[in-house]
Amino acid sequence: MDSKLQKLNKFIDGLDTKEGALITTLHHAQELFGYIPEDVQNHIAHALNVPSSKVYGVVTFYSFFSTKPKGKYKISVCMGTACFVRGAAEVLETFKQELGIDVGGVTEDMQFSLDSIRCMGACGLAPVISVNGKVFGRVKPEDVRSIVQKCKTEGISSGGQGW
């Protein structure tokens, strides 16, 4: 069996109770797989003894869970109010143009995916974006290309500040 599925099984076996454990399990699954595809949903449904329809219902209800794989570089543009009034919409629009994908999309070469998120709480640095968790603050539309280039040429490791 797939080693990730084995890890997931081990996690489920270690739960105190399976009752009400669906969201916790989904968090774990997404950490392991990066997203939650249909076969993993079915696997969880079976293991927790709940209908697949319920698992699907919960996965699609919460924006944190994704049913599609993400790019190597996950770009998240904060669209919280503080970032919005400081020009996040223009930054997001520029990313869409630069990458040629819409929000929630991933480039064909699987290098970039683009998401908008609600608020990452770094309002002092607004507008804020993050690439694989690395935060770039006070981003302007004209910075977008260099951020994308930076990913392509140097790569970006997670955590800390991007600038």
Partner: peptide
């Protein structure tokens, strides 16, 4: 905190 950590306060 999250804001300052985003500006490298951990380093």
């Amino acid at each position: 905190g999250t804001g300052c950590a985003a500006s490298d306060s951990i380093f």
